[in-house]
């Protein structure tokens, strides 16, 4: 597996603010990678480093095998970028901007694909820049990116202004890009979108990667919710490790269990006799929220967090 984006120990400070604090990010070729974090976590700063618009203070960055600062122009011809806040030129129409961005990249746009995308996104290309709404400005940038032949798409919160119907169109387009073998870095804080689209996910917080892996891997590192109706009250529950938020009312149990300790819990439950059982893996939402509880409330250290800490100290 070759990597399209390989970042380690990235540091960037603006004055006294440490925007990136030892961030790691690895995106394999051909995958859709979710880049998650709340506002101000450093997602856009990372993307701007990847685009060679700003220079990192420390750390290693490789993009499509090159250095984004030194080889920016050559690399830019191979990628397409959709900024989080699209601003257009007042006097230029949406159609002109789409064509211009394609030509500046050097390859122009595929006319058939362009027409098809304009139809799917229901975008009128003859309107002038200042008259588009936020969602329509985003569509202009998305059409420009999707009708390019770039190997890598870097999308920075691309759906924040789109309505649910257009969000569906967007998801279908990303899925098509993946089927065509392209790599997508999708920065977002819309978890359902990431859950639906992404092969792997990196969660960042305060300029640092706190989790990275496939959704299955991340879930494995965290807790499963269990709700059970038992024949008799369970015994030995107190002795079990990795149990959280236990609510036991007679024979009704609700709890969270660290996924590694699920097996031990089930043994205790079957010993008491199970009438009904639901066990639900954590949603991405729960994963995410766990990392953004106040600092001292964060659960047990995960592997990814330890890796992040090692890189910063090195």
């Amino acid at each position: 597996m070759t990597t399209a984006i390989d970042v380690s120990g990235l540091v960037k400070t603006f004055g006294r603010t440490r925007a990136l604090d030892g961030l790691d990010l690895s995106v394999a070729e051909g995958e859709v990678h979710g880049f998650l974090g709340p506002n101000g976590a450093g997602k856009s700063t990372t993307i701007r480093v990847l685009l060679g618009l700003i220079r990192a203070d420390a750390g290693r960055v490789a993009l499509l095998g090159g250095d984004p600062w030194r080889d920016s122009v050559a690399l830019h011809r191979r990628l397409a970028y959709v900024p989080g806040d699209v601003t257009l030129w007042r006097g230029l129409t949406g159609g002109e901007v789409i064509d211009l961005l394609g030509r500046l990249r050097g390859n122009g746009a595929d006319r058939g694909r362009r027409t098809e995308l304009l139809e799917r996104f229901e975008l009128d290309p003859t309107k002038k820049g200042q008259t588009y709404s936020k969602g329509n400005r985003q569509k202009v940038a998305l059409v420009a990116a999707f009708c390019s032949d770039a190997e890598l798409l870097i999308l920075d919160e691309p759906t924040s202004g789109l309505d649910p119907l257009m969000e569906e169109v967007f998801r279908a387009c990303v899925a098509e890009e993946r089927d065509r073998g392209r790599t997508v870095l999708l920065s977002s804080h819309i978890l359902s979108e990431v859950e639906a689209l992404c092969d792997r996910v990196s969660i960042i917080r305060a300029g640092r990667t706190v989790e990275t892996g496939t959704l299955a891997e991340l879930r494995h590192l965290t807790r499963t919710s269990v709700a059970a109706e038992l024949v008799a009250p369970p015994t030995g529950l107190d002795a079990l490790p990795g149990l959280h938020d236990v609510e036991l009312h007679g024979t009704t149990l609700r709890c969270q269990v660290d996924t590694d300790h699920l097996d031990a819990l089930l043994r205790v439950l079957t010993a008491a006799g199970v009438r009904s059982l639901t066990s639900r893996p954590p949603t991405l939402e729960e994963l995410f929220l766990r990392h953004y509880e106040p600092e001292n409330a964060v659960g047990p250290q995960t592997g990814a967090e330890q890796t992040g800490a090692e890189v910063t100290s090195s």
């Binding site: 618009l53 122009v73 830019h76 970028y81 961005l101 500046l104």
Partner: peptide, 9 residues
């Protein structure tokens, strides 16, 4: 930004 993120020096 989008101009400088395309093939323009």
């Amino acid at each position: 930004e989008p101009v400088l993120a395309s093939g323009v020096r």
